[in-house]
Simulated assay, not measured.
Amino acid sequence: MRHTNLPLMQVHAHTEQDREARRASSTRWLITPSVAVLFLWMAIPLAMTIWFSFSHYNLLNPDLKGFAGIDNYKYLATDPSFVPSIINTLLLIGWTLVVTVVGGVLMAVLFDRKFYGQGIARLLAIGPFFVMPTVSALIWKNMIFHPVYGIIAAVMRWMGLTPIDWFATYPLTSIVIIVSWEWLPFAFLILFTAIQSLDQEQKEAAKIDGAGPFSMFFFITLPHLRRAIAVVVMMETIFLLSIFAEIYTTTSGGPGDATTNLSYLIYALGLQQFDVGLASAGGILAVVLANIVSFFLVRMLAKNLKGEYEK
């Protein structure tokens, strides 16, 4: 009887395999249109940008056209604003990450404790993340950093000090403060969610063993937040590479090149000098820089996750 049932089992197995193959085939046909649209959505603009970066294309001089080779890249590399824009981009990202990660960890530890009005305080803490970049830049420019009407100027006058024109004296620092104010709630949300998953029994055991607040923070809380910190660094870095509205609204890249990052330089070349070829070359360099940074960040995150799983 066992031998006679074997062909039936094989037929049943083949039938199940055929059903799975047909189901997979139908699924591929269903997702093909969306994948094709997504591919065209990304590929066509990228291909056009690459083509324009190797072309003479200036809206103020339409007679100058044709293949430019790498002339746009050479001109961009020798532009006096190019190297400062790269440095400003890296400084802006680096200092913003320092402020948001450190501040986010401290806020997460603070909000992990029960206190009166915690819900309202948490809502106020995440509020800046939902303010549009242009609006937040205007608030800081006209209500906080303004040397005559700003809150900081009023406090300094009350203390007998001379108000500071922040955007003229400390332009890049001012941009870092504005961007950090916008992204600190994001870091806080990620890190606060991670700290909520910390095993309470582990913390209680550490307290019983005599661990103080600093020991618990450096040896229990901070190692637990390592993976969340890596996620915050990766996500923020990708978005901070394209910071533009805050610079455009407050300093317009100045004074001089003090706050010109790569995004603003591309805007200046494309929409102020009307040179589409140069702007496209800058856009390609920005894409290359973003991919390089993303590659190392993803490797860092993967290594971090691997270390967590091995533990």
Rank of each mutant, 00 (worst) to 15 (best):
I195A: 09
F217D: 07
I190Q: 01
P171A: 06
V155F: 14
T221S: 08
I190N: 00
W183Y: 15
K207P: 00
P223Q: 08
A194S: 14
A205F: 05
L161Y: 12
L189A: 11
S215G: 12
H224W: 13
A153I: 06
W158G: 14
E204F: 04
I229S: 06
I229N: 00
D199S: 11
A228F: 01
A206P: 09
V179N: 04
R226V: 04
L225E: 02
Q200Y: 03
G210H: 07
I177D: 03
H224P: 04
S197R: 12
S197M: 09
T173Q: 12
P185M: 03
F218A: 06
I178V: 15
L191V: 05
V232A: 09
M234V: 12
W166Q: 05
I208N: 07
I175S: 01
F218M: 08
F188H: 01
D209A: 11
V179E: 03
I177E: 01
L225P: 04
M216A: 12
F214P: 00
F186S: 00
G212S: 09
L198I: 15
P171Y: 04
D165A: 11
S174T: 10
I175L: 13
F167W: 10
Y170L: 13
I195Y: 01
S180L: 09
H224S: 14
A168P: 00
Q202W: 03
Q202F: 04
S197G: 14
D199T: 06
V155A: 13
I208L: 15
L198Y: 04
L161N: 10
L161I: 05
L225A: 05
F214K: 06
P223R: 09
W166K: 01
F217S: 05
D165P: 03
Q202M: 14
W181H: 11
R157W: 03
A206H: 06
L198S: 03
W158N: 12
L184R: 01
A154E: 12
L191I: 08
R157N: 12
M235H: 07
R227P: 02
W181R: 01
F188I: 00
V231Y: 13
A228M: 08
F186K: 00
L172G: 07
W166L: 10
W181P: 00
L161G: 02
F219H: 15
I177C: 06
T169I: 12
K203D: 09
I164A: 04
I177H: 01
V179L: 04
L222W: 13
L222A: 13
G212L: 05
H224F: 13
P185C: 08
F219S: 14
H224K: 03
P223M: 08
L222M: 14
Q200L: 12
T162F: 01
F217H: 07
R157M: 13
Y170E: 07
Q196M: 11
G212E: 11
P213D: 10
L184T: 11
W166P: 00
W158F: 14
M156L: 14
S215N: 10
E182Q: 15
F188W: 07
P171L: 04
V233D: 09
I208K: 05
L198W: 01
A187D: 03
G210F: 07
W158M: 13
A206Y: 06
F167V: 05
V233T: 11
V176N: 01
M216T: 14
G210L: 09
L198C: 05
T162H: 11
V176D: 01
H224E: 10
L222T: 05
L189P: 00
A153S: 15
G212R: 08
Q200N: 11
M234P: 03
